[in-house]
Nucleic acid binder design. Structure first.
Length: 283
DNA sequence: GACCAGGCAGTGA
DNA sequence: TCACTGCATGGT
């Protein structure tokens, strides 16, 4: 494995790959494995020992890009650290970085995420990859690349059901048709400001504000994007806004951007990673 | 078996 | 704009 020295960069590999922003990493011994998220048929291996990251199957450029090692995390965390609750989350999760995912994989992953817990999401994505991806062996272990849009668009909608995706089958199929017909869709989204990009993604059937925000944050580096799921809504409502009635998604996101600033998406990631501890402290 | 989970679309008021 | 409902599935 090759070595990358972090120097004084804050980075927590374990937390970054296991906090629920991405779904395909598996840990064997002390090494994390994932099929390459950037479309090639390869397996990435990454291990962190203190200030050194060892990697294999990927380039140093991939490593820096994927794990956003070029983000100035110190500046970002100082910027969002504006109240006791987020301060605790920052202290607890320091080194968590928002990963730069592949837009297509990220879109399908979060379409699979609706009304599900993280293990269920992982099962669906693995089944889709097993059925429509390419098999890759690495260190005696079997992986499957994430299926390309054409592979899913060429399937019949009902076939997707065997991947346990349930009612999301038509949503996945529709997204695959869009991506297969317009391979440049990520560049178009990337070029848009946040609000316009969110509106554009929400035109896809099965994609609402929450899923659009996840894709914008985790694949398009729109760091002001705040995905409001049941956990974040609960935290914002009970710990910040202080009201009984459920917060509308748009209101919750706007509140978070107002409170945490331009890196509100990072604040969301740190609060989400701390969600169970925050919830245990009582409403 | 009930309840909940990184939601969304459709409907009706 | 808001409240409500149905939608598949897996974990607790």
């Amino acid at each position: 494995m090759q070595a990358y020295s972090l120097g004084d960069l804050w980075f927590n590999l374990d937390l970054s790959v296991s906090c629920g922003q991405t779904f395909r990493w598996r840990k064997y011994d002390r090494t994390w494995y994932a099929p390459s998220p950037y479309g090639d048929v390869a397996v990435w291996k990454v291990r962190q020992t203190g200030g050194t990251v060892n990697y294999e199957g990927m380039s140093e450029e991939d490593l820096v890009r994927y794990f956003s090692l070029d983000h100035n995390l110190e500046t970002i965390l100082k910027s969002i650290d504006c109240d006791p609750l987020i301060h605790d989350a920052v202290e607890r999760c320091r080194g968590l970085r928002i990963i730069r995912q592949d837009p297509w994989e990220c879109l399908i992953s979060y379409i699979c995420s609706s009304c599900a817990n993280i293990p269920s999401i992982q099962i669906r994505i693995e089944k889709l990859a097993e059925k429509y991806g390419t098999r890759i062996m690495c260190d005696g272990k079997t992986f499957y690349s994430f299926p390309r849009p054409k592979a899913i668009a060429a399937a019949e909608v009902y076939e997707l059901r065997s991947c346990n995706v349930g009612y999301r089958d038509t949503y996945i199929y529709g997204a695959a048709e869009m991506a297969a017909a317009d391979p440049n869709w990520p560049e178009k989204i990337r070029a848009m400001p946040y609000a316009a990009a969110q509106r554009k993604l929400c035109k896809l059937n099965g994609v609402g504000p929450k899923i659009a925000d996840c894709v914008l944050l985790f694949a398009f580096e729109k760091l002001e994007s705040v995905p409001v799921d049941v956990w974040i809504e609960r935290i914002l409502r009970t710990k910040y806004v202080g009201r009984e009635k459920k917060l509308a998604s748009a209101m919750a996101g706007a509140y978070a951007r107002e409170h945490f600033g331009i890196y509100a998406g990072y604040a969301q990631a740190y609060l989400f990673a701390s969600r169970e501890i925050i919830s245990r402290k009582g409403a």
